[in-house]
């Protein structure tokens, strides 16, 4: 659970984040920070799903669905803003679909299922050439158009995508914050901690799990849409890459599962460190920090991911009860 101090910190961080474009950052750095913010959104949405006890190895699927949808809609001549929103909606639907699998799968099986799900969408994007452009993907995705009611020129150049990425990140954090204080948060936590016990208290677990998937998929889809809008191309191997599944997982676990701001801060730190400190010197190995962070987290995270999951056996551990018994 987040502490109140975090709210102040986040306000300060937000204020700091407004600076880069105003102080005349080089467009490349602006692009890097924007991407870091997108990863912050992705990591926070991963964490939102993990808060409901569902470990995803397939956020690239939701990200990619959002990206492809945004690309297709804006290429068809509709407003790129509508394209972004629809990207979020399709990301949510795609996530809800695989979320239905959580009726039968949990833990490692669900993680593998989500991994396969990404591969399925990558395969579809590769083969459904008439729509997706096949392996070559889609190019020439139009930029965002100016909005009459927005005083800032969000639509032009890197500044626009920077502010939008920042807005998405703040939005997902705000929504997560709200969830933690609502019935949703209570249901998510109960389902995560002990699904069976929750069901005996009137909680039907599946709809809540599907809802968590949909929410997480929505924000991932938004991020995917904006990403495509920034790079102006979309290819199956690029956007359905496991890179977009591994990074949020690393960032969220490294930043602190179940914390409100940890994943986003870890995303900014890890991404910028790897791009600014490693990429210029050893470009081929700039993903090394993520790999190493993942290995370290897997080995040394207290209780592993399990601390987050419902107890694997339907019965409580006897040893625990007896220790308590002895102590009482």
């Amino acid at each position: 659970m987040p502490r109140r101090g975090w709210i102040g910190t986040s306000l300060v961080a937000a204020a700091l984040l407004l600076f880069p474009p105003l102080s005349g950052f080089h467009p490349y750095y602006l692009y890097l920070v924007s991407t870091a913010l997108l990863f912050g959104t992705l990591a926070t949405s991963w964490n939102l799903l993990a808060y409901a006890g569902q470990i995803s190895f397939g956020h690239a699927a939701f990200f990619g669905l959002g990206g492809y949808t945004a690309a297709l809609v804006s290429l068809s001549g509709l407003s790129p803003w509508l394209a972004l929103a629809l990207g979020g909606a399709v990301g949510a639907s795609g996530a809800a679909a695989i979320g239905m699998a959580s009726a039968r799968l949990s833990g490692a099986s669900l993680a593998l299922g989500t991994l396969a799900y990404t591969e399925i969408w990558r395969g579809i994007a590769h083969n459904w050439t008439a729509v997706s452009g096949g392996g070559a993907g889609l190019i020439g995705i139009p930029p965002l158009t100016p909005l009459p009611w927005l005083p800032l020129d969000l639509a032009r150049s890197r500044t626009g995508s920077y502010y939008l990425a920042l807005a998405f990140l703040l939005l997902v954090i705000a929504v997560f914050w709200g969830i933690l204080r609502s019935r949703l948060g209570l249901a998510f936590a109960a389902v995560r901690e002990e699904e069976e016990r929750a069901s005996l208290l009137g909680v039907h677990p599946l709809p809540w799990k599907v809802l968590a998937f949909a929410l997480s998929g929505f924000f991932s889809g938004l991020a995917g849409g904006l990403y495509v809008n920034m790079v102006r191309v979309v290819e199956p191997d690029l956007i359905f890459s496991h890179y977009f599944s591994i990074l949020p997982l690393v960032m969220a676990t490294f930043g602190g599962l179940g914390t409100l701001l940890g994943p986003a801060l870890a995303a900014l730190a890890l991404y910028l460190a790897s791009e600014l400190l490693l990429h210029p010197y050893i470009p081929a190995f700039h993903q090394l920090p993520y790999a190493l962070a993942l290995i370290v987290v897997a080995l040394y995270l207290p209780g592993g991911l399990a601390g987050l999951l419902p107890s694997p056996s339907p019965l409580p551990k006897r040893g625990e009860g007896e220790t308590r018994h002895g102590a009482a």
Binding site: I55, F57, L112, Y290, I295, V297, L299, A306
Partner: peptide, 18 residues
Amino acid sequence: PEPKELSSLMLTFGLSLL
């Protein structure tokens, strides 16, 4: 750490990237 199925997935996802 236990449960091994899940923690091994994380570890080897990292090894795979490496």
